[in-house]
Simulated scan of single mutants.
Amino acid sequence: MRTLRTRRVATARLTQQILETGPGAGPQDPDETVVFVHGNVSSSAFWQDTLLDLPERYRAIAVDLRGFGGTDPLPVDATRGLRDYADDLAALLDALHVGSAHLVGWSLGGGVVLQQLRDRPSSVRSLTLVNPVSPYGFGGTRGEDGQLNSPDGAGSGGGAANADFVRLLREGDRGDDSPLSPRQVLATCYVKPPLRPAREDELVAAMLTTHVGDDHYPGDSTVCDTWPGVAPGDRGVLNCLAPTHFRLDDLHTLPVLPPVTWIRGEDDIIVSDTSLFDLAHLGALGVVPGWDGTPAQPMLAQTRHALGLYARAGGRVREVVVPGAGHAVHVERPREFGAALLETLSEGART
């Protein structure tokens, strides 16, 4: 029976907390090492059941990104896009003597592992993307090729966060009275209602490990003249994802093209062509005032476009849609998620 271990690992960049199971420290077969990267406002705890469900032969490692869980809360330089996180991941793999591995990234973590692929393609055996952020960032773009709506990235970045959610997160709210409490966001946005996760209290606690502020979540922002009046700053999580700082439009040119599986919940409302977290779509719905007709970001179409280029260049790409699931497919539908993941791990081992 698999057991979980939690420990902090000193690396060349910072000390990172990991959750792991399977064979212990030391060099491992890269075909049997799987590394999991969580999404925004969460931690490695969201991968706990996935790690326990893997076959015994796999060494599974789930990392807390900087500013989440038990990892050092070093400031996030958003001008580097997701490279602070990807460089941290590379440093962790070095410290653990993992030369290459299968990488699995959820939401924000999907962008992190894509950045790892972009910068260090030989370190990736396979890539599994779980409701990932678009390769063209979050907010502020239009069209499948991610054209900026405004040169300053208006509509994206730290100013796009809901102030009440940020306040309740900062206050460590564990209740469900407010629709914007972390618990209610978990229950209505991370998963599709009426599902309530079996480990809900633990997952809420994981969300509350998020460091809040300009250097972390949501980050700073700037005022601009373009609707909706906010543009990205240079610090913190949401600015890392702004299209002015994060864009991966050349993945198909890499010298190594490991297999990629894109797993997504059909009813995800966070990463969607009609995302309820996209100010442009909220403007069209009348939720954000003064909407000027800016189109919603076609997040799914953008990911499909980028992965289509990757496939035409020779990479193997598979899209797995899970009906009735939301943003956290691995939490909501562990059996279907696990089956798709194992197929990808087998495919990556043959590469």
Rank of each mutant, 00 (worst) to 15 (best):
H330T: 03
G326S: 14
L89Y: 06
D31P: 06
T244V: 15
F337N: 02
L74G: 12
L54K: 04
I61W: 05
G26D: 01
P228A: 12
A25E: 02
R8W: 01
L103P: 09
P255L: 12
G236Y: 11
R118I: 03
D273R: 09
G293V: 03
E20F: 09
A206S: 09
H216A: 08
E343Q: 14
F246Y: 15
P73L: 05
V166C: 14
L309H: 05
E202Y: 05
A154Q: 13
R247L: 07
P23K: 02
H97D: 09
T222R: 14
E347M: 11
A91L: 04
G157W: 13
N162V: 09
C189A: 11
R264K: 15
E332W: 05
R304T: 13
W262S: 08
V260P: 05
A101I: 07
Y217A: 07
S178P: 07
G153S: 14
T344C: 08
A206V: 00
A206G: 06
G39M: 14
T50D: 03
F68K: 00
Y58G: 08
G81F: 00
R170V: 02
D29H: 00
Q147C: 04
R59K: 06
Q48I: 02
L169S: 01
D176H: 06
A25P: 04
S346Y: 06
N40L: 13
G157V: 10
L168T: 08
L92G: 06
L180A: 10
P197N: 03
S100T: 13
L127K: 00
E200V: 14
G69D: 08
F165Q: 00
D49Q: 07
A231S: 14
D84W: 15
A91N: 10
E347D: 15
A25R: 05
P132V: 07
G172D: 04
D53R: 15
P255F: 13
F277N: 08
S156M: 04
T11S: 10
V320S: 09
R7I: 00
Y217S: 10
A60F: 04
L14P: 09
G111H: 10
P232A: 01
Q302N: 11
A296T: 14
I269Y: 03
V288P: 02
L52M: 02
T71N: 05
R83C: 03
A161K: 14
T226P: 03
G159V: 12
A95I: 06
E144Y: 02
N239C: 07
G155E: 08
A280Q: 09
L251V: 05
M299P: 00
W291V: 01
Y190N: 11
L4I: 15
P258C: 11
N40M: 13
V322C: 02
D201C: 12
F36G: 00
A328F: 13
G172T: 05
R247W: 04
A311H: 10
A62P: 00
P255A: 10
V237G: 03
L180Y: 12
G219R: 12
S100Q: 12
L129A: 10
G229T: 04
L103V: 10
D273T: 08
V271K: 03
V271S: 00
